[in-house]
């Protein structure tokens, strides 16, 4: 799949932002006044910034409001609802902390649930797609949720929560790579089933339908991004999880914590790049590619 920068930025940043909102809503940290203001501004910049970035890849962003209509069947529509609901509820909750110094626990819990629910709907947009066997798996939501929770805890400065969650997220990450590499082969979809021609012999793509490229090849058969897969995996794992864990084991300082967040973010971008670039869409089989 084509690793569109807008979607990589969106899923990474909004995942972090909603993760932070989750821990804020849960009351694990309940800052008030200016401190609360800074935490909420960071969370909203990430969550809303990510959502705005996601509209950049729309052909007609002026019609984006229509995306709220099909929540009965569409995970993308559900994501629209969940994100707006989470942002509104958490804004009210945040206003209580910032301006009145009071924590309305029930509002926080609802906001936390909606925040993490938004991350779930994002992940389901990918996990529902059967045509991409690497994504069509429980580990896709597990990865998005664990990343969001770990990154959110890291941003919140909750080291005792962030440490085990980063380790868990890193483990899930490694599992998605190892298991994901063979999912296309195990899916049962191959050039023989794609063409229905496999009964009498071995099928080979002889001639493509067009001499140049097309939308399908650009969007779904993006192979350039896979070239440095192994190196990027090492970078994603070390920078996203390894280094932040080491930095947090050192005596606490705001400098080190900020560094840990930056390393985590860089690793997150590398991981998300691979999530798209390495995903094989079965339409590639029609072109004898993957």
């Amino acid at each position: 799949m084509h690793p569109a920068p807008s979607v990589i930025i969106f899923t990474s940043l909004s995942g972090l932002g909603f993760g932070l909102l989750f821990w804020l809503g849960l009351g694990v940290l309940a800052p008030t006044g200016w401190v609360a203001f800074v935490f909420f501004v960071i969370a909203y910049l990430l969550a809303v910034g990510g959502l705005l970035a996601s509209t950049f890849h729309l052909g007609h962003p002026e019609r984006a409001l229509k995306a709220f209509t099909q929540w009965r069947s569409s995970w993308l529509s559900r994501e629209a609802w969940a994100s707006v609901a989470a942002l509104i509820v958490m804004a009210l909750y945040g206003a209580g902390l910032v301006f009145f110094g009071t924590r309305i626990a029930l509002l926080g819990w609802i906001g936390a649930l909606l925040s993490i629910g938004t991350v779930l709907t994002t992940s389901m947009i990918y996990a529902q797609i059967r045509a991409v066997p690497r994504w069509h798996h429980w580990s896709t939501p597990a990865m998005f949720l664990s990343f969001s929770l770990a990154g959110g805890a890291l941003l919140a400065g909750e080291i005792m929560i962030a440490l085990p969650l980063l380790a868990i997220a890193g483990t899930i990450q490694v599992y998605t790579w190892i298991d994901g590499d063979s999912r296309l082969a195990r899916s049962g979809t191959d050039i023989a089933s794609a063409t229905g021609l496999g009964t009498t012999g071995t099928v080979r793509a002889f001639e493509p339908p067009h001499t140049g490229t097309n939308y399908l090849l650009r969007e779904f058969v993006h192979v350039i991004g896979r070239k440095h897969s192994r190196n990027l995996r090492v970078i994603a794992l070390a920078s996203g999880f390894g280094v932040p864990i080491l930095l947090m084991l050192l005596p606490f300082s705001h400098m080190l914590a900020a560094l840990a967040v930056l390393f985590h973010l860089a690793g997150l971008f590398a991981s998300r790049w691979l999530f798209f670039a390495e995903a094989e869409h079965v339409v590639g089989l029609y072109y004898g590619k993957r």
């Binding site: 799949m1 890849h57 729309l58 052909g59 007609h60 962003p61 019609r63 984006a64 229509k66 995306a67 993308l76 947009i125 529902q128 797609i129 059967r130 045509a131 991409v132 979809t189 097309n214 939308y215 399908l216 969007e219 779904f220 869409h281 079965v282 339409v283 029609y286």
Partner: peptide
Amino acid sequence: CIGCGLCAWACPYGARE
């Protein structure tokens, strides 16, 4: 249509462009 492209992702046959 908002041009999000998700339907083309969902189609295994490459029938949408």
